[in-house]
Design a protein around this nucleic acid. Structure first.
Lengths: 350, 350
DNA sequence: GCTTGGCCTGTTAACGTTAACATAGCTCGG
DNA sequence: CCGAGCTATGTTAACGTTAACAGGCCAAGC
């Protein structure tokens, strides 16, 4: 009764059923070349009846392109990644490309796996938005060497044939910290890095720079992160880190009067820890986040934060990539740095 | 100086360079069949030197499988989707499959596009976690008819050859509402649906059922959603909906004493609206969310919510799919419904 | 010595599609 | 009425890989 469709229908089968050659069917399907109107109709009907789906593999193999772009994200469930992919999609769709996303869960090993999968499936290009790692960078280098066009977002890796889009997080971190300093704070904590690892975080370096510039010393115990655990925890659970980090800071005999959190979720966690301790923001402690996620303007009090043009970064990365695909591998690299913008809200306004 | 790698290296080229046939190279690459140790080493070296990457398209075309699974998500940036994909990945990776994710941005049209892209690229199976739509269901039906194994998560669509995994959101909504009723609340609002559209939302139906069962009338103006706008807004920004919805409810002369929010983000938005209005939770208004996202236990007060085993749903959906891929299209359908669990926290505890 | 069976490599023919070229009928202007 | 140029179809040969089969070679067992 219902057909057993284990083997997908091929052009040849349709051709046979319609009394033409595969070539004619191909022309009908792809709507190119001359085909008699009557023939076209007949072929179309047969194809529909037989539930034909073209084999993209064969097609891509023959045409030497897949019209597909791969995007590697560190984690999903993170407004930043979402905005980014939205920007990327917007551009790609307009140009007829399909987007496949791979998630690396912030692990270098899976990063490499994602690169490999995408490369093996011969995507026309790769956009990488994961954090740099030795393993990952090596493989990336290799793929680029093999001629795969690539475009990076916020990844600290330079290569003569790869385009790069970043936000100036160093400056962002600097501005955020300076804002707190300008408000008169002397003891400013940072939540979200472990001093031993991941000190490469740009916004944290901005924090350090600002402190230095204004002659404030960096107190190691004001910098808290996820101490023992791995540094690869998915971003979405960082409000936990914020909560725990803030709790740790509050336990100090003299706790900081202001805190710069690695991102908005961390800041929200910190906010709640403070509230739980019966203290108030910004009266007892001022807080700055980072990213300006939609939630940030709806916390209580609303969060001072640093906004970066996320979707725009995705768009530009995609445009760079398509440009490179068209121009070929030897195109010179482009780098685009986006400014960040400090958004002052009640969490720091005394 | 640096090679111009526009054309990727092929087996044949390596074979020529190493003085063997492509077949031998293939055996080396895939580590199957007999190859002399010395030959193997030589081939390996040449392959590495020439920066060889196998062509997955050709391979898949020949082998008739891609060892790739497609996952269609309505939006990224949503802890639910993240957990889901984590569960899916966990299972797939163990079995050697690669996961490609497509995002439909909650649009039926893009849903269909995602299905098509994945089908064209001949993924071995598709997992769908987007909301049902007429267009989408039709295409899904078609693909299944064409023999593509599929597995659904929380999508209201039944087909004799498709497996289904859901959480019992109706019961979850019922329990959440009943919890509020048990606490003595008579006027219970719902934030997150527009009565005109999307009334198919299961958890909302549970709300209605509970009210009915306990003889409480459903007051239309206690049900607020994103009135004019489209109902397809991405999930991550729903705290905005919560904030606005709650604000609307608070403007009533007699506002509800309890509110059930469509999901935790909506609930967080509501929480902040209440705080902003100078009222307190749960004293003035009790709140229940849904999903138990990590944030939920860190809000102030911590949020009463309904937990569903999200990651587990992903895992099971993936397992169903792999089973179906192995057993073939004619396997009978399996359906698995997961229980939801009410998590009572301070946002309802007087 | 001859067979058996394990090693090692090669040859052939697809997988499903399409670019490029080939063929053939038809129309139309000069 | 001839050829130029359009329409409509077909033929051929890849794209890069691998399953299936086909030998050879060599050691061991009888």
């Amino acid at each position: 009764m219902n057909k057993r469709p284990n083997k997908p229908v091929t052009l040849a089968q349709i051709a046979a059923a319609a009394g033409v050659t595969s070539m004619t069917v191909s022309r009908v399907i792809n709507e190119n070349g001359y085909v008699n109107a009557a023939t076209r109709e007949r072929v179309r009907r047969v194809a529909r009846d037989m539930n034909y789906r073209r084999n993209g593999l064969a097609r891509a193999l023959k045409r030497q392109r897949t019209e597909t772009i791969g995007l590697v994200l560190g984690d999903i469930a993170n407004p930043f990644a979402a905005e980014l992919s939205r920007g990327v999609r917007e551009v790609l769709e307009k140009r007829g490309y399909t987007l496949f996303i791979c998630i690396s869960e912030h692990s270098a090993k899976e990063d490499v796996q994602a690169f490999d999968s995408l490369a093996d499936h011969r995507v026309d290009g790769i956009i990488v938005a994961t954090r740099a790692s030795k393993l990952g960078n090596e493989r990336l280098q290799q793929l680029i060497g093999a001629g795969i066009p690539a475009s990076l977002i916020g990844r600290d890796f330079r290569h003569p044939h790869v385009d790069l889009v970043t936000a100036d997080n160093l400056k962002g971190g600097y501005e955020a910290t300076k804002h707190l300093i300008d408000l008169g704070h002397k003891r400013i904590g940072f939540i979200g890095v472990s001093l031993t690892k991941s000190v490469g975080l740009r916004r944290f370096q901005g924090y350090l720079e600002a402190l230095n510039e204004y002659g404030l010393s960096v107190e190691e115990n004001l910098v808290v992160g996820n101490g023992g655990g791995n540094d690869q925890m998915p971003g979405y659970s960082t409000e936990e880190m914020g909560f725990e980090g803030m709790t740790k800071l509050l336990k100090m005999k003299r706790h900081p009067t202001a805190v710069f959190a690695r991102n908005d979720f961390t800041a929200v966690g910190a906010l709640n820890a403070i509230e739980k301790a019966g203290l108030s923001v910004p009266h007892d402690i001022a807080i700055v986040g980072y990213d300006d996620v939609p939630l940030a303007s709806h916390t209580s009090p609303p969060l001072t934060t640093v906004r970066q043009p996320t979707q725009e970064q995705g768009r530009v990365a995609a445009e760079f990539l398509l440009q490179r695909i068209e121009d070929g591998h030897d195109r010179a690299r482009t780098e685009r740095v986006f400014e960040c913008e400090l958004i002052v809200r009640e969490s720091t306004k005394g």
